[in-house]
Structure formats: structure tokens, C-alpha cells
Write a protein that binds this DNA or RNA. Structure first.
Length: 747
DNA sequence: GACGAACCAATTAGATGGCGTCCAA
DNA sequence: TCTAATTGGTTCGTC
């Protein structure tokens, strides 16, 4: 099927022809035949990289040319910005009516937001599923104008913590905009027809890929495929490294999937020792540049470890890395400088980072209750699917590693030849229902118990299960919400001010109850009280206890026993272990806002830089919620803690002591630079204004200093002459004509 | 004969993928 | 439950 034959506006056709797309892939053609461009709902369950995005694009562009508006829902922030960047290339398409303006695209995620009202003026809006839920909860007006909804990675309905949000959000959207076209994109799963049925969508089911994928199992020197075999030279004693060397010899790159962060680091190190020997001079030089960037962008030991690997052409990748390191590794691999990435499943879903060959070094993952467990087929398929770069490789290869013949046949049966598991709604649990029942009532989708039942009947859960079984759980949730003064009334359910606030703050009602009750009960309120309180909530992610931790944390609990909002449990009680983990998490945040170095925090708590920021992120959000809740219940409390919570919120944001808050609020000045200025007597913005430029530039470097002056309203010129002398010239008359000169400031 | 590298087997310690949400300039 | 790291001991080669 030709792209010209689709009846799209000429400009759109030209756009695709210019980018080299003339002919549709078979699954795409099937989607067209099933009415994609006539407004039919559609579920495309096809492999990654087989053109799902194009399907969505065609439908969205068609809708927009008819005056519509599209919402594109993704599961990951990284994916949101990837799609945003892609859709922005439509800005040159003047398909709307008389061609007044190009297509406008907006993005809305937790960390990157075009403002809400303005967001509505876009033709395409990209958002995460949680953000979409949040926009619905805040009753954003333009939601009703949406005519086309694209749901990417819809198989995430199966996820226990995030699936219910997606499910409820879709249900609400369908109720709100009954005429809306829904295009759902999914990996190949067992019961795609069931999801399609729920969405009243036509199903396109296909295994077709633009690049062939050969899946094999390595056993004793050979990779075995269906009907063929490939010999691997046993150059070292490590099988996986031999496969790597073989790939590199053929000019390919390799992605290696490991089961834990620790393993991914250790494999990158080990394989680097061998691979480094095979690199040529130009590659080494290119890698050295990356090594420099890595060292510059890290404050911890991880930077050195990563640098050591990258020098040898390997790298590790997991969520403990900071964002700069992640980006350097990803880009380095794309530019074919880094030859091997040893990664946790971070890279399996989401980011588009294909390689010639994929090695799945471990198909088991640790579970504290059951020991090592085999991963789902779907997870394996996602990893294997990363093999083969479209248009670049003739085919991709994925390799599992077996130690015995029996294991090999098992792997063929259970992974390579197996169908992916069915998707099951996870909405039935109390944890999931509690929060969504509250928001459903707050937003008026249901006002009675019967109304609630009717709403649930429209969900995917009800599509798969009888709903009579769920009503007990629903009643428990309603009781909980009433007991905690979030709802009122028996026949008609009316949200209270507290209930409304909790729904819009987007926290779990259980978190809300913990915080409210804790604030009321606590007698001796300190930073630790509040930090522990938020670390206790189910919205917070907790640290694990390690064998050496018990004694240390226990001592701290005893020393501060009157500061907790509850009486600390005794060592025999079941809650004891949980309590200590909560305190440990609170201590991490305390170190962070106490300006402990990232290096010391990562070592002490055995986490990565990326984790520290992630913990701080969640803590900041929950502290903000606490602040709002404290304000609401202030009349019932003996003391007002709003000041404490809002100061803590700022401190967590910057990771700084109270005295630095003024300095750190200047853009470009973080906790480290602010501390340097402060300790040198520059404690306020005013101090900086009055001080000499030379001094400041000496403290934080002339470039940062120049930015700092601009930020606080002093305009400086920054020049450098042939001899490398740098001059900072004040353009602001307030400062007189002071001129400062430095040389050799860098080191 | 002293020393270190390389190797092997046996034992022990330690692990536990990733993700999102709030507000506001 | 599994794997990587550690430990202890042996062998071999070299000076």
C-alpha cells in the first residue's frame, strides 16, 4: 500500500515521501484497511520497531486536518520527550483549515511542563499516564476537546502499580469523550483480543518485523538457532565474553542484559579488560573524550568505575547512574564508540537503542520471598526485540546462555517458542481501588455506591472478571475513606475538603491518612519527625535493610525515640523491620539536606547518584503534600507546622541547609557553590552585589560568576584575549567601573 | 630455594529490575 | 536460590 493512496493532505504525503517513506509495512496496511483513517478504534499488537508510531501519526494528522486534537499517552518520561521531539517536526505542516499555522505540540510530565491552559492550545499533547490522570483530577477544560487518543505500551495494564492508573484514566476518558477515537499500541501479548474487545477496537495482530530476528541459545561453544548453528571461538573462559568478541569481529555492537545492577557493573569491568585490547587508535581517542566527560559529570566512585570501563569500550547502565552519565553512555553507544553496554532491564523497554546482538545473560531475577525466579516471556521478548537496527543490520540476533542440553531445550520451549503471557487487570486490589475510588467520586464520575459499581463495570477489570467479588473490597475502601473523613454520606457520597485535596495532590489516601494523623499525634516535632512521617507512606520508596544496619539504626531510634509520631515498635514486633527501613530512608534525606556529599551518601546507603535524586524527588513532593495538608488541618493542631514543612520542601529540593536557601534559589547556583560563597562571607544576594567580582569569580569560576551576575540583574561582559587572559567587565553603572582581570583561572 | 603468578576447589557473603505523580516560576 | 568474590592451597616457572 502506497502512502500517496491514503487520501491524506498533500503536505502530509510530501512530508513522508521526503523522509523516505513511500510504502506502508504490512501491519500498517492492515490497520488502514480496518479503518484507522475512518475513525475506528484500533489495537495494534505488533513488535517494537515495526512502525507503530507511524500508525498513530497518520491517524493524528488526519484528525487534526479535520479540526481535531490528539492526546498521546506514554508510560515513561524519557519516551514522552522522544515523541515530543518527533512530533515537533510536524510544525512545518499547515494542514489546519486555511493553513494559518503549523501543527503545535505540547508536553506534560512531572518534570517538564508547558503550562496547563497553554497546553490546551496545542494540536498534539504528549503526556504520561499519571499526568493524564492528574489533569483529569484537576478538571482541565480542554480534555473534552480531545478527538483522538493514542495509548502507547497499553500492555502495561498488567503492571501492579501503574496498570490501574492507566485503566481508570482510559475509562474516564471514554466516559468523557464517547465519540473519541482510541488507538492503542501494544507489544504482542497473549490476549490482545480481550483488550481490543474492551476498547471496542479492531485488532491488528502481527509478528512481522522490518528486520529479521534470530533467537538462539548458546551451549558449549555454539549458538544454536532453529535449524542452524554458529561456532564461537573459545578465546577466553567466559562464554559471554567470547560471544562479545565474535560480535565485535563482525563489526557489530552488543547489548548485555543482567539481572542486577551489581552484576551489570561487574560484567562491564570484566569484559572491558578483554575488549580493550582489540580497539584501534581512533576508537580509543574517541573514547577518551567520553571518559573526560564522565569524570567531569560525577561526584562519586561510580564515575571512576564507569570511566575505566568506557576507556575499554564497554559501559554499564542502570537507574543508579546520574542523568549525565546515562546520556553519555546512550549517545556513546549510538555513535558506535562504546561497543558493549551491560545493563539492567532499564534499556529493555522505552528507549530506542538497538544493537546487532543481544545477550540475555540471566533469565532469572531475585525475589526475596522465592529466591531466583524466571522472568516473564514478555520481558524476554522485549529484551530480544532490541536486536537488529532497522536499515543498518541485515538481521538481529539474541542469545540466551545455557549450561546443559536440558536447560537449552527448556529455554527454547519456555522463551523462544513461547507465547507471551496474558494481560490481567490489577485493579482489584484494595491499594489500587482506594485511590481511584476517591478520585472517581471527587470528579463526579460517580456519586453513589451504585454509580461507583456502574463505573467499575466499564473498566477492563470488569471486562475480565465478575464484579460481585470486588464489591467487598470497594466497601472496605469506602469505609476507609469515611473513617478518615475524606468522604461523607451513606446514599450519596460527598467528598470532604480533605478528600478533594488528597485527590488533587495525587497522593494515596493512605498516605494522606498517615500524614494527617501523624501531624495531629506528634508531640515533639523535629525535622526527623516529618521526614519519617513521609517515609512511612506507601507513596515513598524505601531503602532495604542490610545486615550491618540494624544496630546503627536501632541506636538512632532509641536516641530520638520521642521525635517519632508513633511509639517505635519493639524488636520482636512485625513492624520493627519496616520501621527501621523507614528511618533509614529518612536518614538518607536528612544527610541530603544536611549537605553531606553525594559520594558519602552513596557509600553509606549503598545507592547510586541517580537514586539519591530519585529519593529526594519523591520526598519533596510528599513534603509539599504535607505542607498543604498541615495548612488544611491547622485549626485542629496545637502548633502550626506549615513553616517547617515548606522550609523542608525547599531544602529537599536543593539539598541544602536553611541558611543557604537564599543563595541556592539563584539559577545556576547549587548546594556546593552556595556553600562555598556562604563560607566566604557571601551569605545573601545583597552580599554578592556588594562584593568584588574578582573574589566571586575566584570562588566559583569566572563563567559561573558571569551567569550569576546576570541572574541577579548585573550585566557583565565576558571577554578573553589571545593570551588567554579573561576580563570581566561590569556593564551596570551601579557597580562603578570596577574591572577585574584573571589569568589561568581554570586550574 | 624463594617468590609470584596462575589455577583450582570450596566456602561464604550478599543480592532485591524499573517507573510515575505534587506545585510553581 | 544463584552468582561473584574470597580464601586457601597447589603447581609451575623463573631467577
Amino acid at each position: 500500500m502506497k502512502i500517496e493512496s491514503l487520501g491524506l493532505p498533500d503536505e502530509v504525503i510530501r512530508f513522508y515521501l521526503d523522509s523516505g517513506i513511500e510504502e506502508l509495512y504490512p501491519p500498517q496496511a492492515e490497520a488502514i484497511e480496518k479503518g484507522l483513517l475512518e475513525g475506528n478504534n484500533l489495537l495494534a499488537a505488533i513488535p517494537t520497531a515495526s512502525g507503530k508510531t507511524l500508525l498513530a501519526e497518520l491517524a493524528m494528522l488526519k484528525a487534526i486536518s479535520n479540526g481535531g486534537k490528539a492526546l498521546y499517552i506514554v508510560p515513561l518520561r524519557a519516551l514522552a520527550s522522544e515523541k515530543f521531539d518527533r512530533f515537533r517536526s510536524f510544525s512545518s505542516l499547515y494542514v489546519k483549515g486555511e493553513g494559518k499555522a503549523g501543527i503545535r505540540v505540547g508536553i506534560s510530565t512531572g518534570d517538564f511542563e508547558s503550562r496547563d491552559e497553554w497546553l490546551g492550545s496545542n494540536d498534539i499533547i504528549v503526556a504520561t499516564s499519571e499526568k493524564t490522570d492528574s489533569l483529569l483530577r484537576n478538571e482541565t477544560s480542554w480534555m473534552e476537546d480531545i478527538t483522538t487518543i493514542v495509548v502507547d505500551e497499553v500492555h502495561l495494564l498488567d503492571s501492579a502499580n501503574r496498570g490501574p492508573t492507566l485503566e481508570v484514566t482510559l475509562t474516564k476518558l471514554m466516559k468523557l469523550n464517547p465519540g473519541c477515537q482510541i488507538i492503542a499500541l501494544s507489544a504482542t501479548v497473549g490476549n490482545a483480543y480481550e483488550i481490543a474487545d474492551w476498547l471496542k477496537a479492531k485488532l491488528v495482530l502481527s509478528e512481522w518485523r522490518p528486520t529479521d530476528l534470530h533467537e538462539g541459545v548458546y551451549l558449549k561453544g555454539n549458538i544454536n538457532y532453529h535449524g542452524s548453528q554458529k561456532r564461537i571461538e573459545p578465546r577466553t573462559r567466559d562464554d559471554a565474553i567470547n560471544i562479545l568478541l565474535d560480535t565485535l569481529e563482525e563489526g557489530g555492537q552488543c547489548l548485555v542484559f543482567e539481572s542486577s545492577r551489581k552484576n551489570s557493573v561487574s560484567f562491564a569491568k570484566r569484559s572491558g579488560a578483554k575488549i580493550g585490547e582489540t580497539l584501534d587508535k581512533p576508537t580509543r581517542n574517541a573514547l577518551d573524550i567520553l571518559v573526560e566527560q564522565i569524570v567531569e559529570n560525577g561526584e562519586t566512585e561510580t564515575a571512576n568505575e564507569l570511566a575505566k570501563c568506557v576507556r575499554n569500550g564497554t559501559a554499564f547502565h542502570h537507574a543508579g547512574l546520574n542523568s549525565a552519565h546515562r546520556r553519555i553512555v546512550e549517545d556513546g553507544f549510538r555513535d558506535n564508540k562504546i561497543k558493549v553496554i551491560s545493563s539492567t532491564p532499564t534499556l529493555a523497554a522505552g528507549l530506542n537503542l538497538p544493537a546487532r546482538r543481544v545477550i540475555v545473560r540471566s533469565y532469572r531475577r531475585y525475589d526475596p520471598n522465592y529466591g531466583m525466579q524466571p522472568i516473564p516471556v514478555l520481558d524476554y521478548k522485549q529484551m530480544a526485540g532490541r536486536a537488529g537496527r532497522p536499515h543498518l543490520d541485515p538481521y538481529g540476533e539474541s542469545v540466551l546462555i545455557a549450561k546443559s542440553y536440558n536447560e537449552m531445550t527448556g529455554l527454547f520451549d519456555n522463551y523462544i517458542d513461547a507465547d507471551a503471557e496474558d494481560i490481567w487487570s490489577k485493579l482489584g486490589s484494595e491499594n489500587a481501588l482506594r485511590t481511584h475510588i476517591l478520585s472517581t467520586i471527587v470528579n463526579g464520575f460517580a456519586t453513589t455506591r451504585e454509580g461507583l459499581l456502574e463505573f467499575i463495570e466499564a473498566t477492563f477489570f470488569a471486562h475480565q472478571n465478575d464484579t460481585w467479588g470486588i464489591m467487598d473490597v470497594v466497601d472496605e475502601c469506602l469505609d476507609f475513606l469515611r473513617d478518615n473523613k475524606m468522604l461523607e454520606g451513606e446514599d450519596t457520597l460527598v467528598p470532604t475538603a480533605l478528600g478533594r485535596l488528597i485527590s488533587t495532590l495525587y497522593i494515596d489516601p493512605l498516605s494522606g491518612a498517615y500524614i494527617v494523623n501523624g501531624l495531629k499525634k506528634a508531640e515533639h516535632i523535629t525535622d526527623l519527625t516529618l521526614l519519617h512521617l513521609i517515609c512511612k507512606t506507601p507513596d515513598m520508596r524505601q531503602l532495604y535493610m542490610r545486615s550491618g544496619d540494624y544496630e546503627i539504626i536501632n541506636d538512632i531510634v532509641i536516641a530520638h525515640s520521642d521525635e517519632f509520631a508513633e511509639i517505635p515498635p519493639r524488636s520482636r514486633e512485625i513492624d520493627y523491620e519496616f520501621f527501621l527501613a523507614e528511618v533509614k530512608t529518612a536518614l538518607l534525606i536528612q544527610d541530603w539536606i544536611g549537605e553531606k556529599t553525594l559520594d558519602s551518601i552513596t557509600k553509606k546507603f549503598n545507592v547510586g547518584e541517580g537514586d539519591v535524586h530519585a529519593f529526594a524527588d519523591i520526598a519533596e513532593w510528599l513534603m509539599h503534600a504535607s505542607s498543604r495538608l498541615a495548612g488544611l488541618i491547622a485549626p485542629e493542631m496545637s502548633i502550626d507546622v506549615s513553616n517547617m514543612t515548606s522550609l523542608l520542601e525547599k531544602r529537599i529540593h536543593y539539598g541544602a541547609s536553611p541558611e543557604l536557601i537564599e543563595l541556592v534559589s539563584i539559577r545556576g547556583i547549587g548546594r556546593v557553590r552556595a556553600r562555598k560563597l556562604y563560607d566566604n562571607g557571601l551569605k545573601t544576594v545583597d552580599d554578592i552585589r556588594k562584593s568584588s567580582h574578582k573574589r566571586i569569580a575566584e570562588l566559583i569560576g569566572p563563567k559561573t560568576a558571569a551567569k550569576l551576575f546576570t541572574e541577579i540583574g548585573l550585566h557583565l561582559e565576558f571577554t578573553s584575549d589571545d593570551s588567554g587572559e579573561v576580563t570581566l567587565k561590569t556593564m551596570d553603572s551601579l557597580m562603578g567601573n570596577e574591572q577585574s582581570t584573571f589569568s589561568d583561572f581554570e586550574k
